[in-house]
Design a protein around this nucleic acid. Structure first.
Lengths: 212, 212
DNA sequence: TAGATTGTTAATCGATTAACAATC
DNA sequence: TAGATTGTTAATCGATTAACAATC
């Protein structure tokens, strides 16, 4: 296991995992690349190649052991090795992310949120603390936080980003619709909804054109 | 303009647009591919090829006219040609999406939301109506809604998807962390946060490995 | 004119798919 | 054994980048 993996394959892994977990393991202990691929709309060869990078393989004529596959993918993605994160921006999106229970299963633990608006500070519905931004540096360093999630309006995103970097954050997950500049060595992942929407709306236009 | 475009290029277009709009047009009426690329971390040849697909070109030694570029990208992406959408699921994420002002600039207009919980129905903070699900078919057909946004928990996503399809929806934007099956001809775009997180967390692991 | 910048054609690179050997 | 399924090597495909001609 643990060969090289392409970024596309990496992004497919959570989908395999999602599907495998949704299956009842009692009924079917094994699954073939063909079955898995058909369920998700991928080719079987691609599935095999993807799985080869993370598991130590299936058995000819039998397929892959689903339970092992789940463990292997989770371990490859680091889901069993939780990273602590802070979130900045306790608006609607920020609170939605703060309350989302699913992140823990993905190895992400949001320990607290920050907001510049004192009115928003206190204990969130999720039970997590929303703190003033000037507490960020201390908390991040003390708890050795690795990941910062930005959920503030575009106009404030760069300055929030700078503060996160100054607080020793190693990776930033940016939900603000703006380009951020980070120092070399700091990882930046943008969540670009406009890009998804561009694909969706282009497909829609294309569909209409074809139907005419 | 309007040559063929790769899906990757298509997804970069909103980033160019974002950047161009953030610039003050009074100061600099023109921009070179190099400047634009440097700002966003892309190569200049890539920028030129991307822009060639949507605009009718820049001028040697001058660059591209920023205002024209903005118009060309917006028109290519259909931002000037708003599509109506409905949203299903008025939980935290659903409400965040419902309140997000930015979608209109992307040519997406959420006309109403639906939720199976009668308690959530009524007028949202955003001013938009949250209606019971049994009103969906009628509203979607009457208003010729093209896009359905799914923001319900994974367990309910497929049944919501089926209802949307039955209501004549042409494209689905799925925020639920589950695979959906749609009939041929219906467009499906999944927003997979777990995939982004996989990339982020793999980069983080890689970074740690290198620092050792 | 000279030089900066565009736009296109060709080369490279990476990811997917096909072919086929290995094996349970 | 025969056949299903895996895993790998080679071929194809698509996207990026390099080279260079065109032009303001």
């Amino acid at each position: 296991m643990s060969k090289s993996i392409s970024i596309q394959a990496l992004q497919r892994l959570p989908l395999y995992l999602q599907y495998l977990k949704s299956m009842s393991l009692e009924k079917e202990t094994n699954i073939s690349a063909k079955t898995l691929g058909n369920a998700l709309g991928f080719g079987e060869i691609q599935v095999r190649k993807d799985l080869a990078a993370v598991s130590d393989g299936g058995k000819p004529k039998v397929g892959y052991c689903s339970a092992d596959l789940i463990k292997d993918i989770e371990s490859f993605l680091g889901y069993d090795n939780v990273s602590d994160a802070v979130l900045v921006g306790a608006g609607k999106l920020g609170k939605a992310l703060l309350s989302y229970e699913g992140f823990n299963a993905y190895g992400l633990n949001i320990v607290a949120a920050f907001d510049s608006d004192a009115e928003k500070c206190g204990t969130d519905e999720s039970g997590k603390q929303i703190l003033p931004i000037d507490k960020m540096d201390n908390l991040c360093r003390r708890m050795k936080i690795e990941i910062g999630i930005i959920a503030v309006p575009a106009a404030q995103a760069q300055s929030v980003c700078d503060i996160l970097v100054q607080s020793g954050i190693e990776a930033i997950w940016n939900f603000a619709p703006t380009h951020l500049t980070v120092p070399q060595g700091v990882i930046l992942k943008n969540e670009i909804m406009a890009a998804s929407l561009a694909v969706l709306s282009k497909s829609l236009t294309e569909r209409k054109r074809q139907l005419q």
